[in-house]
């Protein structure tokens, strides 16, 4: 069975129940001749294709849109399975389970349904809430970035600055690189900012995740790409912040801005 067929069979229907098992034969097929580029964001795929020039060096290499798996393109039973599994794994209180049992059809048919959003609904909303209500669930499903935004607005200026700095860096950037970019931005702040390490410690586990590579390098990245999307929305809505961002961003950020211009042109 070819890698492409395996991939099509195992990830075109990524239900949470079968996903982990189904992907393992795909991973076993990966070698020097077969590379798997798997990402939660379209722009990352496009960047990877541009960077590697795979599309230009292989004649019939499929275009980005041909190898996309739309997470919204799930059948109703698959969506139900995803919701059930996340709800079960989150060990929700009785009240929250009651809401899901009574309203599962509205949740799984919601236009904003994605597997990650359902995970957030179960882990971050229903499990944390002492008195969960349907109105709360509905509000979250209708405006999923609102919670991120609310949490972001409650952060100190230094914490917000570090998150903006993350836009200046590659994904999983070394801590040293992030620190340098943070300190560069902090120099231009009107008020004195906190040192890098304590700010990082405050954001770790909530907004950021810190990891160690096989080579021992410590890196950091957003806990979820939707947080990056929320920060971009903030910049899109605030001309002053945007100008400031353009003035102070790193070469990585400048490259992202150039790609942004190209994407605007294509749209």
């Amino acid at each position: 069975m070819s890698l492409t067929t395996l991939l099509a069979r195992s990830i075109s229907r990524p239900t949470s129940a079968t996903h982990g098992v189904a992907i393992s034969p795909v991973l076993a097929k990966i070698d020097k001749q077969h590379i798997l580029i798997w990402t939660a964001r379209h722009y990352i795929l496009v960047e990877a294709l541009n960077e590697t020039r795979l599309g230009e060096s292989i004649n019939n290499f499929p275009g980005a849109r041909e190898i996309l798996v739309e997470v919204g393109d799930l059948t109703i039973p698959e969506r139900a399975e995803i919701l059930y599994n996340h709800a079960k794994l989150a060990s929700l209180p009785a009240a929250a389970r009651g809401i899901i049992k009574a309203r599962f059809r509205s949740i799984i048919q919601h236009p904003n349904f994605t597997p990650e959003r359902i995970r957030q609904l179960c882990d971050d909303v229903l499990r944390q809430e002492k008195t969960p209500t349907w109105a709360l669930v509905n509000r979250f499903m209708t405006n999923p970035t609102q919670r991120w935004r609310k949490a972001y607005n409650n952060l100190s200026r230094s914490e917000q600055l570090l998150l903006t700095t993350m836009l200046d860096c590659e994904e999983d950037a070394p801590l040293k690189t992030i620190q340098l970019a943070y300190e560069q931005r902090a120099q231009h702040e009107r008020d004195r900012c906190l040192p890098f390490r304590p700010v990082l410690a405050r954001l770790e586990h909530s907004f950021l995740q810190v990891s160690r590579t096989f080579a021992g390098m410590v890196t950091a990245d957003f806990r979820h790409p939707s947080l990056r999307d929320m920060l971009l929305e903030e910049l899109r809505d605030d001309p002053k912040a945007r100008s400031r961002y353009i003035s102070l961003t790193t070469p990585v950020g400048i490259a992202a801005l150039i790609r942004g211009q190209a994407a605007t042109k294509q749209a």
Binding site: R41, H42, Y43, L167, P225, R228, D229, L232, L235, R236, P239, R242, Y245, I246, A256, L257, R259, G260, Q261, A263, T264, A267
Partner: peptide
């Protein structure tokens, strides 16, 4: 697709 980029607006 949602816009995952930032671009200049003026």
């Amino acid at each position: 697709f949602p816009n995952h980029n930032i671009s200049t607006q003026s």
